[in-house]
Deep mutational scan, measured.
Amino acid sequence: KVMEIKLIKGPKGLGFSIAGGVGNQHIPGDNSIYVTKIIEGGAAHKDGRLQIGDKILAVNSVGLEDVMHEDAVAALKNTYDVVYLKVAKP
């Protein structure tokens, strides 16, 4: 199931950690970017929809399929206060 989640960045950013990407696979044979941690009190935690194990398909208009881990981190960092995440639920 794919959904779009709109998050408003807090003082600590979006409030979640990711793993995965080309050269840094979270699941062997899979280059996808996965949510590995939700920080308590952060934007994602308060919103409640993003969960550990969700796959991040895109940030705003930037696709995160088959990208390097660093590029995924940069895509999440290089955002304004309002961030749209395209997410696939497991």
Results as ranks from 00 to 15, higher is better:
G20P: 03
L85W: 00
D54W: 08
K12I: 07
R49V: 12
T36Y: 12
G29K: 05
E65G: 14
K1C: 08
V82A: 11
P28M: 05
K12W: 05
D47I: 02
Y80H: 09
A19F: 04
K55G: 02
G21A: 02
V35N: 01
Y80I: 14
K37A: 15
R49F: 05
H45R: 09
L64Q: 04
K89L: 05
T36M: 12
V67K: 11
G63Y: 13
K12S: 08
V35Y: 01
I8T: 14
L85E: 01
V35F: 02
R49P: 01
G53N: 09
I39G: 07
N24M: 12
F16V: 11
T79A: 13
D71E: 12
I18F: 08
L7G: 02
R49M: 14
S32A: 08
A44N: 01
Y84S: 14
H69V: 08
D47R: 00
K86T: 12
K77S: 14
K46H: 09
T36K: 11
S17K: 13
V67W: 05
K6R: 08
D71C: 11
V22Q: 06
E4C: 06
K89N: 08
L76R: 01
Y34M: 10
K77H: 08
I38Q: 01
N24H: 15
L64I: 15
Y84R: 12
K46C: 12
K55E: 04
K1F: 05
G53P: 00
Y34A: 02
V59S: 03
K86I: 07
E4L: 09
E65T: 14
A44T: 04
I52C: 15
G53V: 01
A43T: 15
I27W: 09
S32H: 09
V87H: 02
V22T: 09
Y84V: 10
E65Y: 13
V35E: 00
G41L: 05
K12C: 07
G15E: 03
G23E: 13
V62A: 14
G42L: 09
T79Y: 06
K77C: 11
G41H: 11
G48F: 02
I8P: 07
D81F: 07
G10N: 14
H45I: 06
R49G: 09
V87E: 01
S17C: 15
M68V: 14
G41I: 02
K77N: 10
A44V: 05
K46N: 11
K12Y: 05
G23P: 04
A43W: 03
V62G: 07
V67C: 13
Y84W: 11
G42N: 04
I27T: 12
E65V: 10
S61A: 14
D47K: 01
I5E: 00
N78T: 14
V82F: 12
D30A: 03
N31K: 04
V82E: 14
V59E: 00
K9F: 06
I5H: 02
Y34K: 03
K77A: 09
S17I: 08
N60F: 00
L85M: 09
I8A: 09
T36Q: 09
K55H: 05
H69Q: 11
M68D: 12
N60G: 12
K77Y: 09
E65W: 08
A72C: 09
P11M: 07
A88P: 04
P11Y: 08
A72K: 01
I56R: 00
F16W: 01
N78H: 14
N78D: 15
A72Q: 01
L76S: 02
N24Q: 15
S17D: 07
P11G: 09
K89V: 08
N78P: 08
L50M: 11
G53R: 05
A75I: 09
A19W: 04
G29E: 13
V87Y: 06
I33P: 02
L76D: 01
E4I: 15
V83F: 08
H69I: 07
Y34V: 07
P28D: 05
I38A: 00
G21C: 02
P11D: 07
D66N: 09
G41P: 04
K37M: 14
L64F: 15
G41A: 09
T36E: 08
Q51M: 15
D47W: 01
V59G: 01
K12P: 11
G29Y: 07
G20E: 02
L57D: 03
A75M: 13
K86E: 11
